[in-house]
């Protein structure tokens, strides 16, 4: 059981929840620095990594794709958003409304991920009964 593939989905969901938590930190930092001159907003790349990892055409089913993801493929990375044109004179490119909506959507995403992990666990429990 321990060496089988039952935890594959949980492992991926766990990585996604980690990335979501990291993004919450990045957005918090952006909001805290909304009045800091020359601050550039930071964000996390995870979705593109996951898409790349799942886009492997070697495998057909989702189960195969998920079980062949190695955890270091799914590392969330921080990047500084220098490309956004700043409309502010102080060189800061944080838009408080964008950050607020990202914060809200990220919170819902995190909740959904934790619920999915719980769902996986309850499926396992049901199978073991």
């Amino acid at each position: 059981m321990i060496n089988s593939n039952v935890y594959d989905y949980i492992n991926v969901l766990d990585k996604a929840a980690d990335a979501s938590w990291l993004r919450n930190q990045a957005i918090s930092n952006n909001i805290a620095n909304v009045d800091t001159p020359n601050y550039k907003r930071e964000d996390i790349t995870f979705e593109s990594e996951l898409k790349k990892a799942l886009g492997n055409t070697k495998y057909n089913s989702m189960d195969e794709k998920v079980s062949n993801i190695t955890s270091d493929q799914l590392a969330a990375r921080t990047y500084k958003d220098n490309t956004d044109v700043s409309y502010r004179l102080d060189g800061n490119n944080v838009d408080i409304d964008t950050e607020n909506s990202l914060l809200a959507s990220n919170q819902i995403k995190y909740t959904a991920l934790i619920d999915s992990i719980n769902e996986e666990f309850s499926n396992l429990k049901t199978a073991m009964k």
Binding site: S20, W21, N24, I27, S28, I31, A32, V34, I96, E99, N100, L103, A104, N106, Q107, Y110, T111
Partner: peptide
């Protein structure tokens, strides 16, 4: 805005 972000972090 910071207070909202704090509540979001706490809820998470």
């Amino acid at each position: 805005a910071n207070a909202t972000a704090f509540n979001a972090s706490k809820a998470m």
